[in-house]
């Protein structure tokens, strides 16, 4: 196997909400350019895991490192600065802003106020916005408020906002929820493309979708990671069949 740098390392993370243990002593890791799928039934703790990684919820215990730097308790801004970008399960975009403004919000986020007040980077970003919007089939809607987009288009917009900044780690919580099979296919292509310069964590329900796309898959059940391995290993794992596949 080629030696790839370890990008993200989640070690023994536990997250409790009161007495509910949403994530229980879970570990996972992602190398550069690797796509890891996180599979599991409803309520198994996938989103909670993602939130611990992006800093939305701090874990109760455990350790998270990015490029060997500990980030367990860092705030979201610091994690974004370190190269993390996220698409939430329910698209969290700026509904009253246009598609163009949404992408610009992502692109300019780390720039100084004085550059922003002078609109110094607008020209440069305008090009990038058109490029992304073309890729994500939003070019005809650039000046439409995001709230007027279809559900699938909103997901695409949020993914495009995440990949816009060339993140080193991309977190995608159910990127294809509510999409047609054709749209899923296109999304898979776009995600594959993004993995050329990023490690990616995808949360999904649909094994068929992620087994094509992912290098490795981890399966969660009641907050625990019950299996990890290549898509083939996961598909033939009897434990996985028992806890997950039979339920679908």
């Amino acid at each position: 196997m080629s030696v790839k740098r370890n990008l993200l390392e989640v070690k023994n993370v536990t997250k409790k909400f009161g007495s509910l243990i949403a994530v229980n002593n879970a570990s996972l890791h992602i190398s550069e350019n690797e796509i890891l799928g996180l599979l599991g039934p409803n309520g198994s703790g996938k989103s909670t895991m993602l939130h611990a990684i992006c800093g939305r919820n701090l874990p109760t215990s455990g350790e998270i490192t990015l490029f060997d730097q500990e980030i367990t308790m860092k705030n979201p801004t610091a994690r974004a600065a370190a190269g993390m970008a996220i698409k939430f399960q329910l698209a969290r975009i700026y509904l009253d802003k246009t598609v163009r403004e949404n992408i610009l919000i992502s692109l300019q986020a780390k720039e100084s106020f004085f550059k922003q007040i002078r609109s110094a980077t607008l020209k440069k970003h305008e090009e990038k916005i058109r490029e992304l919007a073309t890729e994500f089939q939003l070019i005809d809607y650039l000046h439409l408020p995001a709230k007027q987009l279809s559900h699938g288009q909103q997901q695409w917009l949020e993914i495009s906002m995440a990949v816009a900044v060339n993140p080193v780690l991309l977190l995608l919580d159910e990127p294809t929820a509510g999409m047609s099979p054709a749209e899923r296919k296109e999304t898979a292509v776009l995600i594959k493309k993004a993995s050329q310069h990023a490690g990616i964590l995808i949360v999904e329900h649909d094994l068929d979708f992620i087994k094509e796309l992912c290098d490795r898959i981890s399966v969660m059940h009641y907050g625990e990671i019950v299996a990890s391995g290549t898509p083939q290993e996961i598909e033939s794992n009897p434990k996985v069949r028992e806890v997950y596949l039979t339920r679908v």
Binding site: A80, I105, Q116, S119, T121
Partner: peptide
Amino acid sequence: SQFGLTMNAVRDDEERAEFFG
């Protein structure tokens, strides 16, 4: 200006803005 958009991004969802950096 671009900063106006930044102000609005914080107004409309300050947590989301943090996730963008």
